[in-house]
Simulated assay, not measured.
Amino acid sequence: MDSTAARRLVLVVDDDALLREFLGEVLRHAGYDTLDAGSSAQALRAIGERGCDVALAMLDIGLPGMSGLELARLLREETDIPFMFLSANEDAASAREAADAGAVGYVVKPVDAARLLAAFEAALARGDDIRRLRRSEAGLSSALAAGRETSIAVGVLMARFHIGRQLAFDVLRDHARAQRRKLGEVAEQVLAAEETLNAVHAALAERMRSR
């Protein structure tokens, strides 16, 4: 286990206090920190307090009240916390249901320490991969949006000042550098100014027609 593992926090959610104690002991011995909860409600409170620190949630499917599957759907929709399931059912339908919910791992009870840790670390690695992919996709989406805005702003400058595309881009880029701002931010400013000018022009034209 590398030194970073000790700083990783795992949320263990199961209504069996003895099992929670066993899971926590195995994980802490392996170098992880743990939070535990006996119900979905307790888990949600823990996530509200320390959700940004949780590397992985280990959920019992058969929780009383809000089930582990329902809790997992909330985690998937409202957080970026990856989760794996613990289940007393070893049938294919239960495993498929867990996969459909977005689980990165599935362990059938009862489970020994070695098998649990192997499944946990595989799930943690997969969860890390998914988080990295989501961050990359978000970054790519932002870059594409900024690229579209920059292209439109360049077109605005070309039309307004009757200059070529390269010159328009160079002016936009140089202005961004001089202001120590991102190119996309300056492009947004140009577009906002153009919208304002168009609105003022339309208002002026309307007033002239009403005379």
Score class of each variant (00 low, 15 high):
D60C: 05
R134Y: 09
G68N: 03
P64G: 00
A95K: 11
R126N: 06
A113M: 10
T150M: 08
D112R: 13
A125F: 13
A145W: 00
V10P: 01
G65Q: 03
V26C: 13
S39L: 01
S142C: 10
R20V: 05
A93W: 00
R131F: 09
R126A: 10
L27T: 02
I81C: 00
D14A: 06
R131E: 09
D60F: 02
P64L: 04
D100W: 12
L44M: 12
R96M: 14
T34I: 08
A55C: 06
E149W: 01
A103G: 05
E78A: 14
A113G: 14
A41Q: 12
R115T: 12
D112E: 10
D60H: 04
L9Q: 09
S40Q: 03
I130T: 08
D112K: 07
V26P: 00
R8Y: 07
E25I: 07
L63N: 06
D91K: 06
T79P: 00
A95H: 07
A72M: 02
R76N: 07
A123N: 02
L75G: 00
D91G: 11
R96K: 12
L69F: 14
L117I: 08
A92E: 15
A5P: 01
V108E: 05
G102Q: 03
R131D: 06
A57F: 02
A98D: 05
S87H: 01
L124E: 04
F120M: 04
D112Q: 13
R115L: 11
P82W: 08
G147M: 00
R134C: 09
V104S: 02
A145R: 11
L9K: 09
R76Q: 09
L11N: 03
E77T: 15
A122F: 14
G102L: 00
D129Y: 15
G51K: 05
M58T: 14
L124N: 00
R126L: 12
G127S: 01
G48S: 08
A146E: 10
S39V: 06
E21R: 15
I61F: 02
R20L: 11
L56Y: 04
G139M: 12
V26T: 11
E137Q: 14
D129Q: 15
G139Y: 05
V54K: 02
L75E: 02
D129N: 14
A43F: 03
L69K: 05
L133Y: 11
A123M: 01
E78M: 10
A41V: 10
R28L: 08
E25M: 13
I130W: 09
D91F: 02
L117E: 01
E97R: 14
T4D: 12
L133S: 10
V26W: 06
A119F: 08
G51R: 05
E21P: 00
F83P: 05
E77R: 13
L59E: 07
S39D: 04
D112C: 06
E137A: 12
A17N: 03
S3F: 13
A143E: 11
A37R: 04
D36T: 15
